[in-house]
């Protein structure tokens, strides 16, 4: 199969759109109904999306340059780290997760341990000061109960 990216994406969109339409069909209609109702518009959007996806499968564009395995891995690590960050921000406070995550991201962009550690620590403290004291946001620097 030539030019698989657009075709695979088109297929994914068709499946997602079908699921979306199926989900729209399940929407409860209330007794206060209007002529269109809550189902019609989402279903129409799903159908248009399927038409677009079919066009993409039929006439795919030139293949994009996907990153090499190593870069893909680096992006994967970045995604995992960011997900962990999302969960860690509340229980662990701002400073520690931010320093770790910023350092890891920095290392993924430019693999120099010294620069990454310094930019992690620097960004964490610098942004905390900026957010907390200059902009006055309510942020907790440390896990609750430490101080």
């Amino acid at each position: 199969m030539t030019r698989p990216s657009d075709r695979i994406f088109g297929l994914v969109v068709i499946l997602a759109a079908l699921a979306y339409i199926a989900s729209a069909l399940q929407v409860q209609a209330s007794f206060l109904s209007d002529p269109v109702g809550p189902k019609a518009f989402p279903i129409a959007v799903g159908i248009v999306a399927i038409l677009c996806a079919v066009t993409m499968i039929a006439r795919p564009d030139a293949e994009p340059e996907w990153p090499a395995v190593r870069s893909t891995l680096a992006i994967g690590i970045a995604i995992v780290v960011l997900v962990i960050y999302a969960y860690a921000l509340k229980p662990l406070g701002f400073l520690i997760p931010t320093a770790v995550v910023a350092a890891i991201l920095s290392y993924q962009i430019s693999p120099s341990p010294k620069v990454s550690v310094l930019s992690g620590i620097g960004l964490s403290i610098g942004l905390f000061v900026l957010f907390r004291f200059v902009l006055g946001l309510s942020l907790f620097g440390f896990p609750r109960g430490w101080f």
Partner: peptide, 14 residues
């Protein structure tokens, strides 16, 4: 960019 982009991410998240 090794300093800038992590900074952008952190600012967005916060």
């Amino acid at each position: 960019p090794a300093i800038l982009m992590p900074g952008v991410t952190m600012v967005s998240f916060v």
